[in-house]
């Protein structure tokens, strides 16, 4: 898939609580095809502590208006700087990067936590386009940490789990009643312990599972070899051979 480096214009910004925001970005011409689970490398301007680009998943794609949306959690200096951007500002992206989700499966479960919810919106829409209505389970410590949920309602059956019980069922996503339903395919993105728990459950029950990893990256295009995961077949580049992997490729990673 051809990659591009492009200046986008920010045409929409939504603040979602204290930690999250979305940026909707206008492409100057026609967006290239973007698979669910792919990501962009965002340039962070105007912050002297930040040198490298930051990898961010593609949250939503609107091919009619040639826009894409990013959902970003403020965790450090780069994401804090990105939060200062306003409508009308430009944002330089290298995109679309990585190998996304397969879109396989009939009875599909999506499990997302925190910023890991980001790629699941575009994934849900791509599954819908194939005639699949997934079950979508979103988790977080508190309701505030589940930045988007209404957007998913028309796309599938939505379940929410919060550790403090402030929204949906109290507990972890893996304890939610929807989690133990009848599925043949699970897609997951979120904190590592969550993804490992989901993947172990899937493997134990013969369910195909795809996980989307968030390793630290420098180049994002397979050149520096900084982002590797210790897969069963040796070190693999998360940015190029992932970020989405089949859980069966990562049993070593799952068990440590």
């Amino acid at each position: 898939m051809k990659k591009y480096i492009t200046d986008f214009t920010i045409i929409g910004k939504r603040i979602l609580g204290e930690q999250y925001f979305t940026l909707t970005l206008q492409h100057p011409a026609t967006l290239p095809p973007i698979a669910a689970g792919q990501f962009v490398e965002v340039e962070v301007r105007g912050c002297k502590e930040v040198l490298l680009r930051r990898p961010i998943s593609i949250h939503d794609v609107d091919t009619e208006n040639n826009t894409l949306t990013l959902l970003i959690q403020i965790v450090g200096k780069g994401t804090r700087q990105l939060a200062t951007l306003q409508e009308g500002d430009t944002l330089n992206l290298v995109y679309p990067l990585g190998r996304g989700f397969s879109l396989d499966g009939e009875k599909v479960l999506l499990v997302g936590g925190g910023a890991g919810i980001a790629p699941l919106l575009h994934l849900s829409k791509c599954l819908n386009a194939k005639g699949i209505r997934p079950t979508i389970l979103l988790g977080g410590r508190t309701a505030d940490l589940i930045p988007v949920r209404d957007e998913f309602k028309s796309l599938g059956t939505v379940g929410i789990a919060t550790e403090d019980g402030s929204l949906g069922e109290k507990g972890l996503v893996t304890q939610h009643t929807l989690f133990s339903g009848d599925y043949d395919h699970i897609y997951t993105c979120g904190p590592t312990p969550m993804m490992k728990a989901v993947a172990r459950h899937a493997l134990a029950n013969g369910i195909v599972c795809e996980v989307s990893l968030e390793n630290l990256m420098a180049c994002g295009i397979g050149a520096c070899l900084c982002c590797v995961v210790d897969s069963d077949a040796g070190h693999k580049c998360v940015c190029k051979e992932g970020p989405v992997f089949k859980a069966t490729e990562l049993t070593k990673w799952l068990n440590n």
Binding site: N215, L216, A218, L225, V228, H235
Partner: peptide, 14 residues
Amino acid sequence: GNAYPRMAETPAGM
């Protein structure tokens, strides 16, 4: 090669 993590950003470098 070495185990992950293999990189860290530092002021004006890595």
